[in-house]
């Protein structure tokens, strides 16, 4: 690199330079992420869930008879009167009280968990980043209003509140994702991202951009937001965990209008009175509970792995 003349630099197109730079930083970041050891473990678990999610429709269209194995409408007539049936060759994780295959439900629910978690997380960080950047850049009244709002939002216990909200409007998966995203986006995330944006705002290159005649929006879009992006990404991971957990708790209590999810599976077992029997019907709650826990765990691990990349003070050296 050092033996290049300025002329050679001029010939290299800008996009190529950017691409090369991007490749180099991602390589560095990846190795830091890898060194955190726990990040890759989380990624592996998430990969397994994705695999299960992709495998489900394939299994349904090949070996699993939809009338029997459909996660919502299925019913195994062969075992009539014996539901919930314990694990067997035809139902590796048994059937639920109304004769549906537990494994099929488990795999199918990965889809809604990902959809909900990712949607809620993206919405929250988009809101949080925008408001945080704007508050930090402009300050004044805008800042005060949004910060007070954040205080107010953080005052509300989300789960308790959503339980009330559900009688006002039925909570479907999409609505839940939107509400969760908005609530956490307006709450704590805004405050964190704003303080990060404040440290970016005082950097010399912001001053330089302003002197060069950059407009406010240009500076926010091209300089502030890209520089708080790493932290944004980090919080996205933690938010996925929070969203999946909240959904599971709410559907566990039967507060959501969702036909199938891991929380709903445990709720079905509880409604039918099988939770009190503990060990005897473990396949009704243990796999679903484990799935919720594992996916939350995985996203949290990835978040911590990213933390090691983003926050240099947590690195080993």
């Amino acid at each position: 690199m050092t033996d290049r003349t300025p002329a050679q630099y001029a010939i290299t197109p800008l996009w190529k330079m950017r691409l090369r730079l991007l490749a180099r930083t991602s390589r560095q970041n990846w190795s830091l992420f890898w060194e955190s050891r726990i990040g890759p473990v989380g990624l592996l678990i998430i990969g397994l869930f994705l695999l299960a999610m992709v495998a489900h429709p394939i299994l349904i269209s090949t070996v699993w008879e939809p009338r029997v194995y459909d996660p919502v409408m299925g019913f195994d007539r062969a075992l009539i009167g014996r539901h919930p049936a314990p694990p067997s060759w035809s139902h590796p994780l048994g059937t639920d009280p109304i004769g549906r295959d537990v494994l099929s439900q488990l795999m199918w629910s990965a889809r809604s968990a990902f959809a909900l978690g990712v949607t809620a997380a993206v919405i929250s960080v988009v809101i949080g980043t925008l408001i945080g950047a704007v508050c930090a850049y402009f300050g004044g009244v805008v800042d005060v209003v949004f910060m007070r709002l954040a205080d107010l939002v953080m005052l509300f216990p989300f789960i308790a509140l959503l339980m009330v909200l559900r009688s006002v409007l039925p909570l479907t998966l999409i609505r839940l994702a939107l509400i969760l995203g908005a609530l956490s986006g307006l709450g704590g995330i805004t405050i964190v991202l704003k303080s990060q944006a404040l440290t970016v705002k005082v950097k010399p290159y912001i001053e330089a951009a302003r002197v060069a005649g950059g407009g406010s929006w240009h500076i926010i879009r091209r300089h502030i937001i890209p520089n708080i992006m790493p932290l944004t990404f980090l919080y996205m991971m933690f938010n996925v965990t929070a969203a999946i957990f909240t959904e599971a708790v709410l559907s566990f209590f039967g507060f959501l209008d969702i036909r199938m999810s891991w929380g709903v599976m445990i709720n079905t077992a509880q409604q039918a009175g099988y939770l009190g029997a503990f060990g005897h019907y473990w396949w009704l709650w243990a796999p679903a509970g484990a799935a919720i826990t594992l996916l939350c765990f995985a996203f949290y691990l990835v978040g911590r792995g990213l933390d090691a990349v983003v926050n240099p003070r947590l690195r080993r050296r």
Partner: peptide, 17 residues
């Protein structure tokens, strides 16, 4: 650390059960 994360993210009803 991993054990701590597991306790922290465990689905509460599962832990209780």
């Amino acid at each position: 650390t991993v054990a701590g994360v597991l306790f922290y993210t465990i689905f509460t009803p599962l832990l209780a059960l």
